[in-house]
Computed example of a mutant assay.
Amino acid sequence: MSGKFIVIEGLEGAGKTTAINTVANILKQNHITDLVYTREPGGTPIAEALRNLIKNGLEDEPLTPKAELLMFYAARIQLIENVIKPALARDQWVIGDRHDLSTQAYQGAGRQLDSQFMTILRENVLQDFRPDLTLYLDISPELGLKRARTRGELDRIELESLTFFERIRNKYRELAQHDSSIITIDASQTLEQVTLTIEQTIKTWLDYNANT
Rank of each mutant, 00 (worst) to 15 (best):
V194M: 11
F165D: 10
T150K: 12
N211F: 03
E158D: 13
E12V: 03
T163R: 01
S180N: 06
L27Y: 13
P131F: 11
D100C: 12
L126T: 09
E160Q: 14
E12N: 07
Q107D: 08
N56K: 12
L196G: 05
V7D: 05
H99W: 10
Y208R: 14
A14E: 05
G15Q: 06
G42A: 03
G108P: 07
G108L: 08
N82F: 10
A210I: 07
E40W: 01
E48S: 08
N211K: 14
T190F: 07
Q112Y: 00
Q78G: 06
I54H: 01
A49P: 00
P131T: 11
D100H: 12
A148P: 08
A49G: 08
Q200F: 04
A14P: 01
E40P: 01
G42V: 02
G10K: 02
P65E: 03
E160V: 00
N25S: 15
I168T: 08
D128S: 15
Q116E: 14
R111W: 03
K203V: 12
L137Q: 03
D128N: 15
K4I: 11
D114S: 00
E59G: 09
F129N: 03
P141T: 14
L159D: 02
E12A: 08
T44C: 09
I185R: 10
L69Q: 12
L113C: 05
I46D: 05
H99E: 10
A67E: 00
T201Q: 10
I157W: 00
A87F: 06
D91N: 15
I54M: 02
R90C: 11
L133C: 07
N56A: 08
T201Y: 00
S2Q: 13
E12S: 05
V36W: 02
E9G: 05
I77Y: 13
P45A: 07
N82P: 03
L154P: 10
L58H: 13
I80V: 14
I198G: 09
I198C: 07
L191E: 11
M71R: 08
D138P: 10
L11W: 02
P65H: 00
E81L: 15
E68I: 02
A210L: 13
V23A: 08
S188F: 00
A19E: 03
S2Y: 10
Q127T: 15
A105G: 08
L143F: 01
Q127D: 14
